[in-house]
Each structure stands twice: as structure tokens, then as C-alpha cells.
Write a protein that binds this DNA or RNA. Structure first.
Length: 295
DNA sequence: ATGCCTGAAGGGTTCAGA
């Protein structure tokens, strides 16, 4: 089963990139963030094109900002929109949707940005993360995928000095992320590529992508029984190239079938190549791109 | 230029993003 997460920075502006990407990568489950439109607008925009590809969608949208969704072609049930008991600003924003896909509880999250350390927005971010931790700790095995707006360590930014005093790298944010992980979630991309330069976001300005000056703030976090099934992980840098990209790239994880065989994909993964991805591979193989070498 | 792009809303510009 292939799971991906992608902050699309307006799904309306990204349709022309999203649909071909679904065809090419054939993910079974996709967590989307920053839809920037309402539920109704999402369904009008995409339902037909998604259905044609076999996807159902759990959408928690919002006008103008935020908005998250889960696309699945391996079943979609038990949909919950929002973060129960979570804080608002002042009202709750559309930053979390959960569903069961292919036998796995999946959450698409868009953690608040925080804007400035010690600001109201920053405190809101920390409160939101604590509410997410409580939700995760309360649940069983699950995947938490999305834009966490935190670079877990200094390895996850192109230059720690460039971010001193800014959000995304402060110790309270990182501590909140660690507490979330201590609730039983593993950062499976970093686990697979412990020493690689891996980014998932590059500022649109100043050629940051071309120079590979980015941050890794989009994570796939998995509970033990799911993390143990990880066969391959990578950041899909191809999706950040070319005309009209999001400023984030998708992060992709392939899971082997569950050991007991009854939590498997309904649609088989496109190939078994993922199984061999720990071996050296040709540079043209996108599965190799867990490390983000410059182009 | 402490905002070098991009998107949304709404109005002929401003805010937000990380």
C-alpha cells in the first residue's frame, strides 16, 4: 500500500499537477493540506476526476485558508473532521481529518504555522500539538501525515543559522513534536534515511528549490506495527519542478502487506520494486530520492 | 526590499505563508 502526503498550497491552483501526479505515482492513500477551499467547492472541482481514478475523498475544507483531505482507493470509513478538544483561533480551523483506509487509521494534519515565537499564534500552535498528542495517545495504530510546520532537528533545515529566532525550529516546538512521537509514532522517512539531506518544502523565492535550500517539515509518522511494514520512503522532488508547483513536495511511503494478510491493499501496488529499494538503484529511479541531491 | 514568490479576497491592494 502506497501512502503519500502533500501540502498542495491551493488544490484549485494545483489540479493540473495533482491529477497527473495521481496517475503517475498511483498512491492508494493521499493526505492533502492547504486546500484553501470549502468542502462544496472541493467536491465540485474534483469528485468526477477522483472517482474516475477510483478515489473517494474525506474533505474538511475551509474558505480561503487551511483545509485538509484524505483521498483513498482502498476504502474510506469512520471519517472524523477536526481535532476533538483542540483549540481554535478563536474558532477551530480545518487542520485535521481522520479516516480508516485499507484497515489503517490515517490522519491528514496541517499544524498551525505559529508566525512569530511567543506570539498568540505560536501559543496556539503548541496547544494544537498537545491536543493532537492526546488524540494520538488515545487511539490505536495509526498514520499521522502532513505539514507539521516544524523541522524536527537541525538536520532538517538547509542552514540552522538562517532560522535562529524563527518558528519551525524553536525548542518548544521541537519538544512538542517529540512528545507527539513519544505517544507512539515513528518518523519513517528519517528512520530510513538517517543521514541524508532531505527537504519537503522550498520557498518560492530566490531560487531556493533550485539551490536545494529547504526544510523538512512534511512528515509521515507511523505507529510500530505500521512502521515495521515500511518498504520504501522518499520525497517526490519531481512534483516540485516545472510549471505551477506547490512550494511543498509530496512525501511517499510504501508499506508491505500486513503479516496476517487481512490488512492488505485492495488494489495491488504498481510494482514490487519498492521491496528492493534498500539496494543501490539507478539515478533515474525516483524511489532513490529520499536524499535530495541537487538537480 | 528585514516579503526576492504565490495564492486568496476583494477591490485597484493587503494579508498570509515558513
Amino acid at each position: 500500500m502506497r501512502i503519500a502526503t502533500w501540502n498542495v498550497n491551493s488544490v484549485k491552483q494545483r489540479v493540473a499537477r495533482l491529477l497527473p501526479w495521481l496517475d503517475e505515482r498511483a498512491p492508494d492513500v493521499v493526505c492533502l493540506q492547504e486546500l484553501k477551499l470549502t468542502d462544496d467547492a472541493f467536491h465540485r472541482l474534483l469528485d468526477a476526476d477522483l472517482a474516475a481514478r477510483g478515489y473517494e475523498a474525506a474533505v474538511h475544507g475551509q474558505s480561503q485558508w487551511n483545509g485538509v483531505a484524505i483521498l483513498s482507493r482502498v476504502g474510506l470509513s469512520d471519517v472524523v473532521a477536526g481535532l476533538p478538544g483542540g483549540p481554535g483561533f478563536p474558532d477551530q480551523e480545518a487542520r485535521l481529518v481522520s479516516a480508516v483506509c485499507g484497515g489503517i487509521t490515517v490522519r491528514s494534519v496541517y499544524v498551525p504555522n505559529g508566525r512569530e515565537p511567543d506570539s498568540e499564534h505560536y501559543r496556539y500552535k503548541l496547544e494544537w500539538l498537545e491536543a493532537l498528542r492526546a488524540l494520538v495517545a488515545d487511539g490505536g495504530p495509526q498514520l499521522v501525515c502532513g505539514d507539521v510546520n516544524i523541522a524536527p532537528t537541525d538536520r532538517d533545515v538547509f542552514d540552522p543559522a538562517a532560522y535562529v529566532g524563527q518558528t519551525h525550529v524553536t525548542e518548544p516546538e521541537r519538544a512538542a513534536l517529540r512528545r507527539l512521537q513519544e505517544a507512539g509514532l515513528r518518523d519513517v522517512v528519517r528512520e530510513r534515511w538517517p543521514n541524508e539531506r532531505i527537504f519537503s518544502y522550498w520557498d518560492y523565492r530566490a531560487g531556493m528549490f533550485h539551490k536545494d535550500l529547504g526544510m523538512r517539515i512534511d512528515l509521515i509518522l507511523a505507529s510500530d506495527p505500521i512502521a515495521d511494514r515500511v518498504a520504501a520512503t522518499w520525497v517526490d522532488r519531481q512534483a516540485r519542478k516545472g510549471k505551477g508547483p506547490s512550494d511543498h513536495a509530496p512525501v511517499i511511503v510504501d508499506l508491505d502487506e500486513a503479516p496476517d494478510g487481512d490488512i492488505g491493499p485492495v488494489v495491488p501496488p504498481p510494482s514490487r520494486v519498492a521491496k528492493t529499494s534498500r539496494l543501490p538503484q539507478a539515478k533515474s529511479d525516483p524511489r532513490r530520492q529520499g536524499g535530495n541531491k541537487s538537480d
